[in-house]
Design a protein around this nucleic acid. Structure first.
Ligand SMILES: [Zn+2]
Ligand SMILES: [Zn+2]
Ligand SMILES: [Zn+2]
Ligand SMILES: [Zn+2]
Lengths: 395, 395
DNA sequence: CGCTGTTCACATAGTTCA
DNA sequence: TGAACTATGTGAACAGCG
């Protein structure tokens, strides 16, 4: 690809695949190939299938391997198929061009040109009388234009005050998350004792999972789902949600997690405990933590929206109403985008949104390995709840 | 052919002053100067006065003598001030350009580029497992994005969804539709005679269109729109509305439409008559009919709400107050969602909502790609009817 | 032969300056 | 005011790949 331009342009990167972008295409910054791809496929009725798990990471190299995920990402970053010209519009455009062409080929007839000269001559006669008629709106057209203007005025006034503030509907939705989250970070001391060992992870996970379920049930979109789907979402999303949570309490200086041990005391849990695991999850996890921008980590709203996005992942196994889950997830993606626009200037909002999407994608990747983490333990050491959630009963 | 040449030449002449034109500007073929003139003056509130009799002959020479007549003519030949970028839009555009400029000068931060490189490496590992997960249909995916927008876009009614029961205001709105619809399915025998031929479609369409217009005028939201928009909505929507209507009377067993011929007698019209049409409109239409779930087809409330949604389509050509139309449409979308929630459990309501939106979209596609093209059903055909109903005097 | 990605043509916005 | 200009974002078309 034309990737050699190492002097990467922050705002000139394709939102889909990361290749070099020239500008906006169908309402999002994309490379030329993704533009063509979108034009060719966005309107197709045929459904693509992902050869993997519907979470392909898209790059200039990998983009062509999975049409499903590519198209999905196109929509996710805001490409709009309405901006693709319909056959009808194309036809109109084609005719216009043809008309132009045929004109240029014929250096012909100044018939009309002559006419205009005549017009200008007759017009001169108009100048003979110089009366000042008051311009009453007597033609139908002027009545219409006036009516239009009158009706448009108040409309456009309210329109111009388009700020990026969240609307009440949007705020409501965000507040719901904040409320649901309220006692997620309550002290845990009563419930348990940490020993600075990898088993702490299991202990903490158990607590967190319990709180997570409680929290989910406070989200109306979740509560309205059928029982089967609720269970499937929790099972499928648990690990990822835990990892995301761990980002929130991560202390990059000490390389520890801050655990609210009691009301006063905050205890540090070294993330080194992950090294004890047999599978190699330490590096991956730490990489994820370290690359998680401080600015995002510490913004509760962002983290909550990400949590919701991850909770409502339609690609989890055994989901029945995938369309509904995806709808909810997209609502939260939309909210995230809107929230970012409300706190950052347009340009930064957009790039942050793209980076956060990227983070969600990375999280999906990590999940694969982490899920095996618990398999290394003796089932007797693990609470029944975790066994149920993580489907560990196979041993 | 030579005719075209002249027409083509015509198209290179400014519609306002007859000067040489380069192409379309603000929706009409004009010269550069009229383009600039329009941009500068079309949005001004101040009214110009004609120094003559408001019938100035505009030429390349005289055009600058009378702003009043020049602007008038601009509108007359179809120039649209909506196409002038608002200050806000200009600002956005300016920013985009600035961003581009600054990017080219600064060979900065290859942060994202680096990340994507890592990604492409990890993505490779994905190829190890090759499972085939179930994918959502392509069509639904893009519908979901639309649904999200619908959820957060403003609408003309207040959204207070405490319970799933419809509020009294919502019920009122629905009742209005039911009342307006009342005599849509009245017998038609007095008016005409069916011959079992494709001409029947045309006959029936004429009757239906007339009723449709009557019905529309009973909807207060419609009545309150300006007359231009009323006409534009009907012109643009009647085909789709007719097709939707045909769904209501479709009999899937006999593959016929039930036509209320007289009070007692219901006559079947085989939909095979469509085969006589030029193109694959038969297949398209039948496909649409067959995939229209029985449960929705037979629910009058759903069908009426869909009708309203289709009627208030802001993307019709020549709409002036698109915002207003959109607002009304959103309200009906919202009402549909609320209605579904009142009759179905959460998951099913949401899912049905999506599928209905999809139907609306399909209908639009059928109209765009097939009817307009192949059947040559020119919306102008209903012009006489519209004029009759609106009692417009055209001169 | 269908999908991909590059390169090009074109229409039509705004901008600038005499 | 208007001629000359730039910028943006559409589609078309072609060449290469599998
Ligand atoms: Zn791309
Ligand atoms: Zn994929
Ligand atoms: Zn002109
Ligand atoms: Zn005049």
């Amino acid at each position: 690809m034309s990737n050699q331009g190492i002097e990467a342009f922050d705002s000139k990167v394709c939102g889909v695949c990361g290749d070099i972008a020239l500008g906006y295409n169908f309402n999002a910054v994309t490379c030329e190939s993704c533009k063509a791809f979108f034009r060719r496929n966005a309107l197709k009725v045929k459904t693509f299938h992902c050869p993997f798990q519907e979470k392909c990471n898209l790059t200039a190299v990998t983009r062509r391997f999975c049409q499903k995920c590519r198209l999905e990402k196109c929509f996710l970053i805001g490409m709009k198929k309405e901006l693709i010209l319909s056959p009808e519009e194309k036809e109109i455009k084609r005719r216009k061009i043809m008309a132009n062409k045929s004109v240029e080929s014929k250096p012909c007839c100044d018939l009309i040109r002559n006419e205009t000269k005549i017009d200008s001559a007759t017009a001169q006669t108009n100048f003979n009388h110089f009366s000042f008629t008051y311009s009453l709106p007597n033609t139908i057209t002027s009545i219409i234009y006036k009516a239009v203007e009158l009706e448009f005025e108040p409309c456009s006034v309210t329109r111009t005050s388009v700020s990026n503030e969240l609307t009440s509907t949007e705020l409501e939705r965000l507040d719901e998350l904040i409320n649901a989250n309220e006692d997620f970070f309550a002290p845990i001391s009563i419930e348990t004792l940490l020993v600075g060992h990898i088993k702490d992870i299991i202990t903490l996970t158990a607590i967190a999972v319990r709180r997570l379920i409680k929290m989910s049930k406070l989200i109306s979109a979740f509560k309205n789902m059928c029982q089967d789907d609720q269970m499937a979402l929790l099972k499928g999303g648990c690990t990822e949600l835990m990892i995301l949570r761990s980002v929130m309490t991560y202390d990059p200086n000490k390389n520890t997690w801050k655990i609210p041990y009691s009301k006063k005391e905050i205890k540090d849990l070294k993330i080194d405990v992950l090294k004890e695991a047999k599978s190699n999850i330490y590096d991956e996890h730490q990489q994820f933590l370290r690359t998680f921008n401080e600015e995002w980590r510490t913004n509760q709203n962002i983290m909550l929206l990400l949590s919701a996005i991850i909770l409502f992942s339609p690609e989890r196994p055994k989901i029945i109403h995938r369309d509904v889950v995806k709808l909810e997830q997209n609502s939260y993606y939309y909210l995230l985008r809107r929230y970012l626009e409300s706190i950052y200037p347009g340009c930064k909002a957009r790039s942050t949104f793209l980076k956060l999407i990227q983070k969600v994608s990375e999280l999906h990747q990590i999940n694969e390995n982490h899920i095996k983490f618990f398999l290394d333990f003796n089932p007797h050491d693990i609470e029944p709840l975790l066994i149920e959630i993580f489907d560990l009963k196979m041993h």
